[in-house]
C-alpha cells in the first residue's frame, strides 16, 4: 500500500486520479482503519490529507465558518465562536464515538463515509452547510444534502476531494440543536438522529430546517416538518404536526440497532425535543 501526504488539495485529487487500484482519502481514519483491519478494504493508495494547509483549521469569515476537511471533531468543540453560532453542529461532532475518536475523526469524513447514521450530517444539512469539492480540474461548492447518495455512496467523482465544510453566518435569534438516540449514553451509532435549525422573529419561527439521520438510506431533510413549525411559536400542536411529519418521512430498516417501528416513533420524539432546544437557544420562550 502506498501512503502519500500531499501538500495541496489539487495534488491530493491528482493522486486519486492517477491511481489505477483502490485509493482512499485518509483524514481521521476512524472508519477507514476499522474497515482495513476487518479486511473489508485493501487499499493500494492512501492519501493522507492532514498536511494540506487548506484542509486544516477553522476560519471565521464574513460568510460564516470554513472548517477544513482534516480538522478533528475535538477542534470544533474548542472553537468558541463556532460553538456559540452553531451549537447543534458542534454537539453532533462531540457525539461521534469517544473523546479518543473525536481526537481523530472529521466532519468531512463523517459526511464522505455516507453512513445514513452519521451524527454530523443531519446537523450540517439542517444548518445549510456546503462542501467545497476539489477535483484535478475544477472546484465546486455543493450543499451537503446533495452529496450522500445511499449507504456508502457519494455524489463525488473518483478524483474529487472534499476540502472544507462551510457553515453560513446566521442572523440573530437563531438556534440549532442535534439529538440522537443510542441505547447507551455514549459510544453507540445513532439509532435515530434529529437536527433542527431555526430563526425566530419576535418569538415566531421564521425559517427552519429539519433533518433526520438513521431513518433512511441517507440522512434526509424534511421540509414538511419544517413547514409545520414555521409561523408558529412552537406550540404543542405545531410540535405534534412536526413530529408526525418526521415519522412520516422515515424509511428505515430493521437491524441490530433498532426496529422500523422504533425508529419511526423516536424520530418524531427526538425532532420535537431538538426543536425545543433550538427554539430556546434562539431566545424563544415556550
Amino acid at each position: 500500500m502506498r501512503y502519500e501526504t500531499p501538500e495541496t488539495t489539487r495534488d491530493a485529487a491528482a493522486l486519486l486520479a492517477a491511481e489505477k487500484g483502490e485509493a482512499y482519502i485518509l483524514a481521521g481514519g476512524t472508519d477507514l482503519l476499522v474497515r482495513m483491519k476487518a479486511g473489508l478494504l485493501e487499499p493500494d493508495l492512501l492519501v493522507d490529507i492532514k498536511q494540506v494547509p487548506a484542509m486544516n483549521g477553522i476560519q471565521q469569515t464574513a460568510a460564516g465558518f470554513r472548517i477544513g476537511a482534516a480538522v478533528p471533531a475535538v477542534e470544533l468543540g474548542e472553537h468558541r465562536a463556532l460553538g456559540r453560532t452553531w451549537p447543534g453542529v458542534v454537539e453532533a461532532a462531540k457525539l461521534i464515538g469517544s473523546d479518543q475518536v473525536q481526537g481523530r475523526c472529521t466532519i468531512a469524513g463523517n459526511l464522505c463515509n455516507a453512513s445514513p447514521a452519521a451524527d454530523t450530517v443531519p446537523a450540517l444539512m439542517a444548518a445549510g452547510a456546503k462542501a467545497v469539492v476539489v477535483g484535478p480540474e475544477r472546484r465546486r461548492t455543493v450543499p451537503v444534502e446533495k452529496l450522500p447518495r445511499g449507504p456508502g455512496t457519494m455524489a463525488l467523482a473518483k478524483s474529487e476531494v472534499v476540502e472544507a465544510i462551510l457553515l453560513p453566518q446566521r442572523p440573530a435569534k437563531s438556534g440549532d440543536a442535534y439529538l440522537r438516540f443510542i441505547p447507551r449514553t455514549e459510544m453507540d451509532i445513532a439509532v435515530v438522529g434529529a437536527a433542527v435549525n431555526l430563526t425566530l422573529e419576535r418569538g415566531v419561527v421564521k425559517t427552519a430546517r429539519i433533518a433526520l439521520g438513521a431513518v433512511a438510506p441517507t440522512a434526509v431533510l424534511v421540509p414538511r416538518a419544517a413547514r409545520a413549525i414555521i409561523g408558529t411559536r412552537l406550540d404543542d400542536a405545531a410540535l405534534e404536526k412536526m413530529a408526525a411529519a418526521c415519522s412520516a418521512a422515515c424509511n428505515p430498516i430493521d437491524d441490530k440497532r433498532g426496529t422500523i417501528a422504533y425508529r419511526v416513533k423516536v424520530a418524531g420524539v427526538l425532532a420535537r425535543r431538538a426543536a425545543c432546544i433550538a427554539y430556546e437557544r434562539a431566545g424563544g420562550k415556550r
Partner: peptide, 16 residues
Amino acid sequence: TMDGRLVCSCLVLGVE
C-alpha cells in the same frame, strides 16, 4: 496522546 491529543493508537497508522 499524539501531540497532546487523546487518540486510540489502533486508529492511527504507524506512518502517521
